[in-house]
Every structure is written in C-alpha cells, then in structure tokens.
C-alpha cells in the first residue's frame, strides 16, 4: 500500500528538482555571460607583448568559442548540448569539461565524505552524552565547546592548523600532496588537517542538534514505558530515544549539506590546495571559464537536490507516520 504513493511522490520531486536545477543553471549562465570580462582577457598581455591588435585577436578567440553569438543563442546551444550529454569545453584548461570533472571530483568527494563521517559520528555521540547528562559539568563544557566550534571561521581554523602542525611542529605538509595514491594511509594522513578544518563546524552543529533532539524525546512517556519493561539503559537511549531523535536530526544534517559543499568544502580546498571541484571552479571563475563554472554549479546543485530527495524517502522509513501527498 506504501509503494504507489511513494513512487508518484518521487517522480514529482524529481521533476521539481530538475526545474530548480534548470533555474539555477540559467541564473548562473546569465551571471557569467553578462559580466564585463571575457575569457579572452588572459591573452591580452601576450597579445600586447607581440604587438598584435588586441581587438582582432579577441574577436578571433571569441569567434572560435562561439562567444560572439547573441547570449540567448549561446544559452540555447549550451542547453541543447547538455541534453545530449555534452558538457562543453573548458576554455582555460583546454579540455572537455567532463574530463576536467572526472579528474577532480574524487578530491572533493573524499574530503566531504571523510569530514561528514568524522563530524557525524563524534558529534552525535557527544550530543547523546550531553543530553543524557543534562546540566552536569560535562554537558556545560560540551555546550560551550560546541558554541566555539560553530563560531570558528573554518578557513581561519585551517590556517591555524597549518601554522601549528605544519609550520611549527612540522607534522604535516603545508599543502595537500596530490601525488599520493587515493587509497593509502599517507593520503589519509594528508587529509587529516583538511578533514578537521571542514569537520569541526559540522561536528559542533551536530552536537547541538543531537542534544536538543534527544532532550525533546528523553522525557516522553514511551521512554518511561521502555524503562518499565526492564530494558537496559543503552537500549532505552540508543534505540527508543535515539530512533525518535533521528528524525529531526536527519533533516537538519541533510539540509546543512548544501552550505557545507558550497561553503566549507570550497574554502577548505583553497586553504589546503586540494584540487577538488571547489578549487577548479574557483580558478575557472577567475579565468572567466564559464562552461566550467556553470557545469560545477549545476553538479553541486544536483547533488544537493538528490540528497534532499533521498532524505525525504529515508524519512518515510524512519517515521512510519509520514505520508507525502
């Protein structure tokens, strides 16, 4: 009886997500294309040095990449190509955008994945502990620390970690070493500081969310029932209370993902020189490489939308009372 409405709901949401993604694609495209600067700008110095006429060369370059056509036509062609699976050509790196993304996505992925795991596991455990021990010294200490954690600017935290652990103590390289094989201990070690940088804010936020979600449920009658049944405390807390606290928690955590992917991860990659998609799109913005900017924005948006959808579906299993129309 559940399957029918759920499938309809998923289809509806997918369609909705696509529309939002298209809206964001359009806004990004317009922003990038109406800007005063041109992808050809970076050749200007060269051109001047060689004594050529800049306007002619720029016109030639723009013609080559189709930048001289009306913006609307460029937009139409871009969408048309996208629908055929063609993500365009990166102007600044001279390779297909899809190749560029294929080459760099894993660096962002590993950073975000490891940071999320680190933050979620530790944050949720501390949050549970803090709630169970409400108003004790430990609870106050964790609450205070979590305040600092959410307040600390993560790019500054990254710089401080580099200052202390790399510059002063020499435990880590000051830069992320891209030559390391992905699945190696050395790579894990190289990711330590970036993961702490990106994970600390998340961790602190998870402590706060978990604590308050647990407190909302700890005094509910069904918890007393669970204790009255003679269940040991770890089942009462870990199963009965936590399963209920998980509902708001999942929503908030997933909701945060967008700002983490586009804010925190972006800055962390720049601080540590990790060649992920954040770094790539950062460089692309400064190089006016609009196909890359648009493509990465689109991918990021799609990931966030997809995660939101998966969360909503997971929710129907976590909370049997939920039914979406």
């Amino acid at each position: 009886m559940r399957k029918g409405w759920l499938r309809d709901y998923i289809l509806k949401r997918l369609l909705y997500s696509l529309i939002i993604a298209w809206g964001i694609l359009t806004v990004t495209f317009i922003l990038v294309r109406v800007g005063p600067s041109s992808p050809a700008d970076k050749y200007l110095a060269n051109i001047a040095a060689r004594g050529q006429d800049p306007s002619q060369v720029i016109a030639a370059i723009e013609a080559r990449y189709g930048l001289d056509k009306p913006v609307l036509q460029q937009y139409g062609e871009y969408i048309f190509n996208l629908l055929r699976g063609n993500w365009g050509w990166s102007l600044s790196t001279s390779m297909p955008v899809i190749e560029l993304i294929k080459h760099h996505w894993i660096y962002s992925f590993q950073l975000i994945l490891l940071s999320s795991l680190f933050a979620a596991i530790i944050g949720i455990l501390i949050g549970i502990y803090s709630a169970v021990k409400q108003y004790t010294k430990a609870d106050y200490a964790f609450t205070f620390l979590s305040f600092i954690g959410i307040s600390i600017p993560n790019f500054w935290l990254g710089v401080m970690l580099i200052l202390v652990f790399s510059v002063k103590l020499g435990l880590f390289k000051t830069y992320y070493d891209t030559t390391l094989p992905l699945f190696s201990l050395a790579n894990l070690k190289a990711l330590t500081l970036p993961v702490i940088t990106l994970g600390t804010g998340m961790l602190a936020a998870y402590v706060r969310y978990t604590r308050s979600a647990m407190l909302d449920n700890l005094r509910k009658p069904f918890v007393t029932t669970a204790r009255a049944k003679g269940l040991p405390e770890h089942i009462v807390i870990g199963k009965h209370v936590f399963r209920n606290a998980l509902l708001p928690l999942v929503t908030i955590i997933m909701f945060d993902l967008g700002s983490i992917v586009f804010g925190g991860a972006y800055l962390t990659e720049i601080v540590f020189g990790i060649p992920g998609l954040g770094q790539v799109s950062f460089n692309a913005i400064f190089a006016n490489d609009y196909p890359v900017v648009v493509a990465i924005t689109l991918i990021g948006t799609l990931v966030v939308l997809l995660v939101n959808l998966v969360t909503d579906i997971a929710y129907t299993y976590l909370d049997p009372r939920i039914r979406y129309e």
Partner: peptide, 20 residues
C-alpha cells in the same frame, strides 16, 4: 524561496562579486 535556498549561496556571492 526554495530555488534561492537551493542556490549555492557562497558560490553565488563569489560570482556576483567577481563579476561586478
């Protein structure tokens, strides 16, 4: 509002500030 919320806030800022 939904669309704006989904929009990568920081990236949008970077774009706007870079362009203008």
């Amino acid at each position: 509002t939904d669309v704006m919320m989904t929009f990568p806030f920081f990236l949008l800022l970077v774009l706007i500030v870079f362009i203008f």
